[in-house]
Simulated scan of single mutants.
Amino acid sequence: MVTIFREVVYAQPLGFRPLALDLYVPAEPVALCLYLHGGGWRIGSRADGLEVGPNVPRSPWQQPSFFERIAQLGLAVASVEYRLSGEARFPAQLEDVESAAHYLAEHRGDFGISTDARVCWGGSAGGHLAALHALTTSLPVSAAVCWYPVTDLVALLADIDDAGGQADRSRESREARLLGATADERPETARAASPVHAVRPGAPPFLLLHGDKDTAVPLRQSHRLAEALRAVGGHAVVEEVPGATHIFPELDDAALQGLLERSARFLLAAATGEKGAAARGHGAPG
């Protein structure tokens, strides 16, 4: 059984709307997972899970939802909304994620969550924020799973070019809207917003899933973060999804469910102290 708490307000930044999260709690959660939605930092909501299906997005309220299915595996899932780039520039989004994490650390008992183990998960822009949160938060994080994440804003456009995509170098691009200018115009802000430049010794283990045909956020982005983590002695596994583009629209339900379950079990293993087993259980580093 999964208990759902909807529209839990966790913060109200001065001058902005209240920010809320939805919380999905199994009977005996092993860990609390902070989940961050994608959408290029411009669109999306806490109702959006990693449910694509065969070429057509699913309804976020399909039963059981992505969040309920993950909760049934043992993770309490907090799907967090954050300020979009049309509302605020970076680092507002990261500050919102940190606020949500602290709110949950203080109030988890109110929602029947007794464990203090924390993990994080996100896709695309949400994968970027999950990675950055795992590397910079003041709270302990046991592991992070990132699906097709942006990890290096400085190198992103060159990676898109190399992958055969169409890089947007304008001030209207998703990255420029996040930063308030292009990465070339604000290189220090772009570095500060890039997980590869936040890597540190003692970072939690990462599982990065990425399609090998992704030209929107190329596979090289996941490898950049994995290489940086390994350079400081960290655990990082890149799982390449053959033939998949951004958000995995090519996958059928069975393949998608397999990736969801492997991702959840990676987080569960790390949260219970099986970091090595978590990494080994998902293949050799790619």
Rank of each mutant, 00 (worst) to 15 (best):
S79C: 08
S79P: 12
R118W: 15
S85T: 14
A88Q: 13
V80Q: 00
L75C: 02
T115N: 08
G74T: 02
H128D: 04
V97F: 01
G86N: 14
F90D: 04
D110K: 13
E81H: 07
P91F: 07
V77Y: 04
V77G: 05
S114D: 11
H128W: 02
Y103C: 01
A100M: 09
V119Q: 04
D116V: 09
E98M: 07
L104I: 10
V77D: 03
A125F: 05
P91T: 11
Y82C: 05
H128R: 06
S124C: 05
E106K: 14
E106Y: 00
A130L: 04
L132G: 06
R118K: 10
A117K: 15
A130I: 06
C120G: 03
A101C: 11
L84R: 15
V119W: 01
R118P: 01
A117Q: 15
L104E: 10
D96A: 06
L75I: 04
H133P: 03
D110R: 15
D116N: 12
H128T: 12
L75H: 05
Q93V: 04
A76D: 02
A100R: 02
G123H: 11
G74W: 01
A78F: 08
A105E: 15
L129S: 07
S85A: 15
P91C: 09
G112I: 11
A92F: 10
P91Y: 07
L84K: 14
A78E: 08
A117C: 10
E98H: 15
S85R: 13
A105R: 15
S99P: 00
G74V: 00
A125Y: 07
G86D: 13
T115Y: 06
A105H: 14
L84I: 11
D96K: 08
S124E: 05
V97M: 13
S124R: 09
S99I: 00
F90Q: 00
A88V: 12
E81I: 05
G127R: 07
H107E: 10
H102C: 07
S99A: 15
H133R: 04
R89T: 13
A125G: 12
R83P: 11
S99T: 12
V119N: 02
E106N: 12
A131W: 02
S85H: 08
G127W: 03
F111W: 13
L132E: 08
D96E: 09
L129R: 10
R108L: 10
F90L: 02
S85L: 07
L132N: 12
E106T: 12
A100N: 11
A78D: 08
A134I: 10
E95W: 01
A101H: 04
Y103Q: 06
D116Y: 00
Y82Q: 07
Y82P: 09
